[in-house]
């Protein structure tokens, strides 16, 4: 976690906005192993996100309450907490899919529209008659726009992204015929093509097998090493301890945010559970929000 900057400006030295070194995508092309293929280079300043006293919720009931802090550019953060802790709501709020009840979200170095957001699989229409190539090519939206066709060179990019996630031979398959793991690989391929400097993942490894998780983690690590800011909502605390240097522990309110080892302590986890269970649905108007 980093402290949010004042409205006047960003403390550039401490947040490390930086130019990336890996500009040559060909350096990655042709690799056969999953996670070792093409990754679209950033070519722009990595993004950071700051939350200022952010409250998100539904029908005046806060699901995320007065949350402040920042995701530094190039950081890799897990968002954890019990069910109903507001993790997915936080991601939706950051992406602008949910209007804050109070506070604000500041994007630095990029904008929400240029970020990549992977919702939970249940939010997608898996029976829609579209091919894997059709879905992955949507990652090129900013190049294709409303009507531009998929040219041979763009099609090649799609194929490379599919190879990166281990779906090289799946381009013409109907999405409805994919398994849960294959479906998630496809969404990662679309995310790769977006070339976003900020990536938000909502439970990306839920209900998929160990091998697929490892493959997708390899892709995620690669994107992070590229300098992209990655935020992932997760439930597997062991996975978080081993693979995520930063953790935000949420229970509708902030419990802890910082280095994972400092956040995932027994006391903090107990506090998270207690905050969740102590939640009062009949609560009066929030004094901080009304002030």
């Amino acid at each position: 976690m980093v402290a949010p900057p004042s409205r006047r400006g960003l403390r550039r030295d401490s947040f490390g906005q930086r130019w990336l070194n890996h500009h040559d995508k060909n350096a990655f092309a042709g690799a056969s192993s999953v996670g070792g293929g093409m990754i679209t280079p950033l070519g722009e300043i990595a993004g950071s996100i700051f939350l200022h006293d952010l409250t998100l919720g539904y029908e005046r009931h806060p699901a995320v309450h007065h949350l402040s802090g920042g995701f530094a550019a190039g950081s890799l953060t897990a968002v954890v907490g019990p069910n109903g802790a507001g993790k997915s709501t936080l991601l939706k709020g950051m992406m602008g899919l949910l209007r804050p009840l109070a506070g604000r979200v500041d994007w630095r170095g990029t904008i929400a529209r240029h970020a990549a957001y992977l919702p939970q699989q249940a939010e997608l229409e898996r029976d829609f008659p579209i091919t894997v190539e059709g879905v992955v090519s949507l990652g090129l939206w900013h190049q294709l726009g409303l009507w531009r066709p998929l040219t041979a060179s763009l099609r090649k990019q799609v194929q490379e992204a599919l190879a990166t996630v281990g779906l090289a031979s799946f381009a013409k398959r109907e999405v409805s015929s994919l398994s849960g793991g294959q479906f998630q690989r496809m969404l990662f391929a679309r995310m790769i093509l977006q070339g976003a400097s900020v990536i938000l993942l909502d439970e990306p490894f839920t209900a998929i097998d160990h091998r697929t998780i490892e493959d997708l983690l390899a892709v995620m690590d690669r994107l992070h090493r590229e300098g992209r800011t990655v935020v992932a909502v997760l439930h597997d605390l062991d996975l978080v301890r081993h693979r995520f240097p930063q953790t935000l522990l949420l229970a509708r309110e902030l419990v802890a945010w910082g280095p994972t080892a400092d956040v995932l302590t027994t006391n903090n986890l107990k506090r998270a559970q207690a905050l969740q269970e102590a939640w009062d649905e009949q609560a009066p108007v929030c004094a901080r929000g009304a002030a």
């Binding site: 602008g96 929400a112 957001y117 919702p119 409303l146």
Partner: peptide
């Protein structure tokens, strides 16, 4: 229909994706 085909498809398949990448 041909002009709006792509966003129509995205809105059917993954509505939040369309809301994120475009205001259309």
């Amino acid at each position: 229909l041909i002009l709006i085909r792509r966003p129509l498809v995205i809105e059917c398949f993954d509505p939040s994706f369309l809301r994120v990448v475009s205001g259309c």
